[in-house]
């Protein structure tokens, strides 16, 4: 592992980072809080939901800034991905048709499920029973089909 350089010797982040620095910091703090929150009183499978949610929100934020609002430069976007501010693999899915709102990668991973199918949250609301309220096991998503 390469040595971590001192902040003063690191290359500065690309232009425009200062605009989003504050919001990224807020996300980072939220993430820290979520990671440090006690998980004593919640079901085991729910322990990681907040982490997934915050990660999703942050990735979405960067994705929208770059692809929809065109607010940040390519350099900055690449730099953000490189520095793990966003999940590049998840963003790669969002670009595909039918996956525009995908909540997490685990929910489209068919191989790990009992019936070799995707997660319940991928099922469109129209196909669910009337009034059926689902929340998926892996990330607490309530439905991320593109047509919802």
């Amino acid at each position: 592992m390469p040595a971590i350089r001192a902040a003063s010797k690191r290359k500065p982040p690309p232009e425009g980072f200062t605009d989003i620095e504050e919001d990224l910091l807020i996300f980072g703090n939220k993430m820290k809080d979520a990671q440090n929150a006690p998980t004593d009183n919640i079901p085991k499978h729910q322990a990681q939901w907040p982490v997934f949610q915050i990660s999703h929100q942050r990735s979405r934020y960067i994705y929208e800034l770059y692809y929809e609002k065109e607010a940040i430069s390519k350099q900055l976007y690449d730099w953000l991905l490189k520095n793990n501010y966003a999940d590049a693999l998840l963003i790669a899915k969002w670009k595909k048709q039918g996956y525009e709102k995908l909540c997490c990668l685990r929910c489209v991973q068919t191989k790990e499920t009992n019936f070799n199918s995707t997660c319940i949250c991928r099922v469109p609301k129209a196909q669910l029973k009337e009034g059926q309220d689902v929340q998926c096991v892996s990330c607490g998503c309530r439905g991320c089909a593109s047509c919802d």
């Binding site: 979405r60 934020y61 800034l65």
Partner: peptide, 9 residues
Amino acid sequence: INPYSPWEK
């Protein structure tokens, strides 16, 4: 409002 901030904020 900061235009760079997310909607959730």
